[in-house]
Simulated scan of single mutants.
Amino acid sequence: MSKADKVPPDRLRELVDTILAAFDERVDGWQIAGRAYTSRFHFDRLVSAGLGEAPAAFRRRLLLERAAWRLTQGCSVTDAGWEAAYNSTEAFSRAFRRAYGRPPSAFGRVRADFRLPARNGVHFHPPAGMFLSDRTTTETDMDLTERLLDHDLWLTGRLLDSARELTAEQLDREIRPGHTVLDFDGPEPSVRRMLERLVWTKEVWTAAIAGRALPDGGDDSVEALRARWARAGAEFRALAADVDRRRAWDDTFIDALCDPPQSFTLGGVITHVLTFSAYRRQVLTEALAAVGCHDVPPACPMEWERGQLAERPLTSDQLRGLGEAG
């Protein structure tokens, strides 16, 4: 692709949205281009450069994918063809056989994958959405472990920041009397205690994996907890990333400070910490709101990721966020 052909991500998203908005309408390429306020030639050139697929072929493929999925759900060949914008069953059957290597009448019986090959990774997603399969490899790619770790690091920090606006009375009020997450951690009835346990858990398990003496805790003021979290959260994140890099999830260590001594795998520990951290964070968001905190961050990872994507512009190769379209 030449420099002149590169499409700004925002503009490409607008063009793709225009195609998807006309998904169920019987319109031609000229009409779709007109809705994007551009000529047919310019529209086709921009979309082809950004997607690696001409707009007509892109729309036709998605319609065929939806038709194939509908066939697996018991839809008739006639109805599937009409929904895919074919004026005759014969034309639909010819196009379907060319794409899938079998007639539509047989596709519903075998229940094969309805997705057709596409370099851009954009596919129909049942029942009426879009799916982006990102097969690119970049320095910013994240696997599931990294995503969970980054969300945990961000949200715990935001919860601590939110607690700064609370008074001592609000921090120590027993919102959930007797609330206990794990017996050996003791009760966590107040916001302060919930925050302290969230931080302390990272400190304890980081020390256990690193082979250091277990911490005694420390100052539980919000400012002190924020400083403790800056150290413990970052260290735990780096430690888990190193385990992932070395594929050392099944490596085992024995914690002799337990009574009796116990053995743990690195993967088991990290999974344990993230699981109970997620639960504690959810409870904390509710507790903060209950004591009158006005700046409670969303606990949902999807909302966090949406915010991250907004700060990192989309690339025309990846088209992240396209799954929300349609």
Score class of each variant (00 low, 15 high):
Arg226Ser: 10
Phe264Leu: 05
His151Leu: 03
Thr285Ser: 13
Gly157Glu: 04
Thr275Tyr: 07
Asp183Gln: 08
Glu165Val: 10
Leu309Tyr: 02
Gly101Ala: 08
Arg192Cys: 03
Arg66Ser: 06
Arg164Ala: 12
Leu257Phe: 08
Arg197Asn: 12
Asp259Cys: 05
Glu286Ser: 13
Ala248Met: 06
His272Pro: 01
Ala54Ser: 15
Gly326Cys: 09
Gln318Ala: 12
Pro260Glu: 07
Leu12Arg: 00
Ala289His: 11
Ala54Tyr: 11
Asp161Lys: 13
Gly326Tyr: 10
Cys293Met: 11
Val16His: 11
Ala299Cys: 06
Leu116Lys: 09
Ala238Asn: 05
Thr156Cys: 03
Thr38Glu: 00
Leu198Val: 08
Arg66Trp: 06
Ala230Phe: 08
Glu188Phe: 00
Ala310Pro: 09
Ala54Asp: 15
Ala224Leu: 04
Arg94Gln: 09
Ala325Gly: 03
Asp28Tyr: 09
His151Pro: 06
Ala54Thr: 15
Gly217Arg: 03
Gly211Ala: 08
Phe23Asp: 02
Glu223Leu: 08
Ala68Trp: 14
Gln73His: 05
Asp161Gly: 13
Thr252Val: 15
Ser133Pro: 09
Asp24Ile: 06
Gln73Cys: 07
Gly101Lys: 10
Phe96Ala: 00
Val27Cys: 05
Gly157Asn: 08
Lys202Glu: 09
Leu322Ala: 13
Asp161Ala: 15
Asp219Glu: 02
Thr206Glu: 01
Ala168Val: 06
Arg98Thr: 14
Gly307Ala: 07
Phe131Ile: 03
Leu160Val: 10
Gly292Lys: 05
Ala84Asp: 03
Gly292Ala: 05
Tyr37Met: 06
Tyr279Met: 15
Val47Gly: 01
Pro189Trp: 01
Leu274Trp: 02
Ala56Trp: 11
Gly121Arg: 12
Ile209Leu: 09
Lys3Leu: 14
Ala95Leu: 09
Ala21Lys: 15
Cys258His: 11
Ile209Glu: 00
Ala22His: 15
Arg231Ile: 03
Ser48Gly: 13
Cys300Phe: 01
Arg45Gln: 15
Ala56Val: 12
Arg97Tyr: 10
Glu305Arg: 05
Thr271Ile: 08
Gln308Gly: 03
Arg45Asn: 14
Ala224Ile: 00
Phe23Arg: 14
Ala278Val: 00
Thr140Asp: 07
Leu288Ala: 03
Arg13Gln: 14
Leu225Lys: 00
Ile32Gln: 04
Glu311Arg: 15
Cys300Ser: 04
Val273Trp: 02
Arg97Thr: 15
Asp251Gln: 12
Leu257Lys: 15
Pro215Trp: 06
His151Ala: 01
Asp244Thr: 10
Ala49Asn: 13
His125Gln: 15
Asn87Arg: 14
Trp304Lys: 11
Ile175Ser: 08
Arg193Trp: 03
Glu188Tyr: 07
Leu149Trp: 04
His125Val: 06
Ser133Cys: 11
Pro215Lys: 01
Ala68Phe: 13
Arg13Phe: 13
Ala36Phe: 03
Leu319Ser: 01
Asp216Cys: 09
Thr136Gly: 10
Asp185Ser: 12
Val243Met: 01
Val181Leu: 12
Gln170Thr: 01
Pro127Cys: 04
Thr78Met: 06
Val269Gln: 06
Pro261Asp: 11
Ala85Pro: 05
Thr137Asn: 14
Leu51Tyr: 09
Leu198Ala: 14
Ala248Ile: 05
Pro189Gly: 04
Ala227Ser: 08
Phe184Lys: 00
Ala128Met: 02
Arg281Asp: 09
Trp82His: 14
Ala112Phe: 07
Val269Trp: 00
Leu198Met: 13
Val191Asn: 00
Gly108Leu: 01
